[in-house]
């Protein structure tokens, strides 16, 4: 999980926005539309990141199609310290 998070955030294009999504979902569940408003991101961008994060078992969803709520997977919750470590590196000079 640690390696995976590093790769998803620091090894791929658009990783920073992925980290922001994880951070938001840690605080409370959101749907894709709310996330795009909250993070000031394009809706399609958010959908793309969500797809990748879901495929990698970082987040889970519940509900139907458009109102689908997303939250962190159990595995991600357990490894949230790892994420915090990466998060602290972001923007540090």
């Amino acid at each position: 999980m640690k390696k995976l998070l590093w790769w998803l955030i620091a090894g791929m294009k658009g990783g920073i926005n992925r980290a922001r999504i994880i951070k938001s979902l840690y605080e409370r569940p959101y749907n894709a539309n709310q996330l795009s408003e909250e993070l000031n991101l394009d809706y399609k961008t958010v959908r793309h990141h969500i797809k990748i994060l879901e495929q990698n078992n970082v987040i889970k969803s519940s509900g139907e199609k458009y109102g689908k709520m997303y939250f962190l997977s159990n595995e991600m919750e357990e490894n949230y310290d790892v994420f915090k470590e990466i998060w602290e590196q972001i923007g540090k000079k």
Binding site: I9, A10, G11, M12, K13, G15, I16, I86, I90, G91
Partner: peptide
């Protein structure tokens, strides 16, 4: 170019290595 963008935002061994 992707690695450089990531390195600018996240200074770490991992991004430096890439």
């Amino acid at each position: 170019s992707i690695y450089l963008q990531n390195y600018k935002k996240i200074k770490s061994k991992f991004t430096m290595g890439l």
